[in-house]
């Protein structure tokens, strides 16, 4: 087994475990912590896939900004932990689980067709996934989507400010 395989397997186990814990935990703060662990393991998976810049951005944007925002809001609201683990009674929950298993089985049917010769990784050069190569592609072939993403973020920022703002006295 190569180092990459060990790293990827470990990260996969951590990712699945933390994802399960996100759903299982009652407290939103603990869930958020496990989600951070999940994002970290996915960053390691990106590393094993040759996405060096991608992994750094994953930590910087997802773990460093989005999840901090989550925790900040959870702390700001500080909701009392809910008593029930799931929203519905045991029957509906069981049926949902059954549906989930069915959904997973149908997904896996598609995934399994990748096994064997059709699912080998292409061999790539040293510069695969480097900052320069990703940046060049982003600013040439994907320039318009990139700018649109900027506009999207601007709209989201304005929207967030408008939504979360307390109304000043005298406004309706």
């Amino acid at each position: 087994m190569s180092l990459d395989t060990i790293l990827a397997s470990g990260a996969s186990i951590a990712a699945i475990f933390s994802a399960l814990m996100v759903v299982w935990q009652r407290s939103a703060v603990i869930s958020a912590l496990f989600l951070v662990l999940n994002l970290g393991s996915v960053a390691i998976l990106f590393l094993t896939l040759g996405g060096e810049f991608l992994a750094a951005v994953q930590v910087l944007v997802y773990a460093g900004a989005i999840m901090v925002l989550f925790l900040f809001v959870i702390m700001l609201l500080n909701p009392a932990p809910l008593k029930e683990r799931f929203a519905s009674g045991p029957v509906v929950t069981g049926l949902t689980f059954a549906l989930g298993v069915l959904f997973f089985a149908s997904l896996m049917r598609g995934v399994m067709s990748l096994a064997g010769a059709g699912g080998t990784m292409a061999s790539v050069g040293e510069s695969y996934g480097s900052t320069r190569s990703v940046g060049e592609l982003l600013f040439t072939a994907y320039l318009y989507p990139f700018e649109l993403a900027g506009v999207l973020l601007l709209v989201a920022m304005v929207g967030a400010v408008v939504l979360a703002r307390r109304q000043a006295p005298g406004e309706d």
């Binding site: 750094a56 930590v59 910087l60 460093g64 901090v68």
Partner: peptide, 15 residues
């Protein structure tokens, strides 16, 4: 990507 790592670690301190 050392500089990005540094920035990322700095933002992880918030947790």
């Amino acid at each position: 990507v050392g500089l990005l790592i540094l920035l990322g670690l700095a933002s992880l301190e918030v947790y």
